[in-house]
Design a protein around this nucleic acid. Structure first.
Lengths: 123, 123
DNA sequence: TTAGTTGCAAAAGGTTTGCCGTTTT
DNA sequence: AAAACGGCAAACCTTTTGCAACTAA
């Protein structure tokens, strides 16, 4: 990850511009608009590199392929709609997770995922 | 999942007896002791069937292969130690996840995963 | 007897890697 | 020109599936 290439820039752009975490395939599709002959391998190699540089976060939803979002986003969690399967960012976060762990355990981080119906599908 | 076979019984046994969620590979290894020519395909087919019958739960830790545990356990979440990588069950659960979602969203379920150091590793 | 199950091998689906030509610096 | 990078295809790994043989009921 030393050089600035068209591919790398396009990949980072679509991830930063998206309002939701993207699958590798979605990154490929969206970045292909700018870089037509872009390959999936390049998407994966750049995602890996960008992640190691701390520019991306990986969002793992249980049983699904990893999605990627910009790392400069603030601490937040996700909501997945069971009907349309879209993933939404949640704005707030219940702190105080420490009390869930047995005493003697050190809680450094946590992940919360909600499931249900989004506004459109619950309507 | 209509018949009671040696394979199915062995697979269910090792998952129920284990004190932690098991990977498919671990189930194969442990159940092979009872059923020597057991195949991975059979493990997966039975896990799927047992899951659909509500006898198993799937435990997804971000970025890792799914693990399986008995479904008769009460609602709980998990803690993974970043040092020894072991997974622990948590006993309690903060309810009130509804408030995290935007209004209009219907929250049906949630998942919480804590990361840090377990008692032994935090010592 | 016969429909559900198993083992094996092959197929899938997503991610990684090797090779070699291309591009950035 | 040198080193990094990208495209393509093949390799990998985990999970699923097709199929003939087996087995529980």
């Amino acid at each position: 990850m030393e050089r600035k290439t068209r591919q790398r820039q396009a990949i980072l752009d679509v991830i930063v511009d998206a309002q939701r975490p993207l699958l590798a395939q979605e990154v490929l599709l969206m970045a292909s608009v700018t870089v037509p002959r872009l390959s999936l391998a390049t998407v994966y190699r750049n995602i890996k590199g960008l992640y190691e540089e701390g520019l991306l976060k990986v969002v793992h939803l249980p049983g699904q392929n990893p999605r990627y979002e910009p790392a400069n986003s603030t601490h937040h969690h996700h909501f997945q709609c069971r009907q349309c399967e879209r993933v939404f960012d949640l704005e707030s976060c219940l702190g105080n997770m420490e009390q869930l762990a047995p005493s003697g355990f050190l809680v450094e981080d946590h992940e919360v995922i909600l499931y249900g119906r989004c506004g459109a599908c619950a309507g």
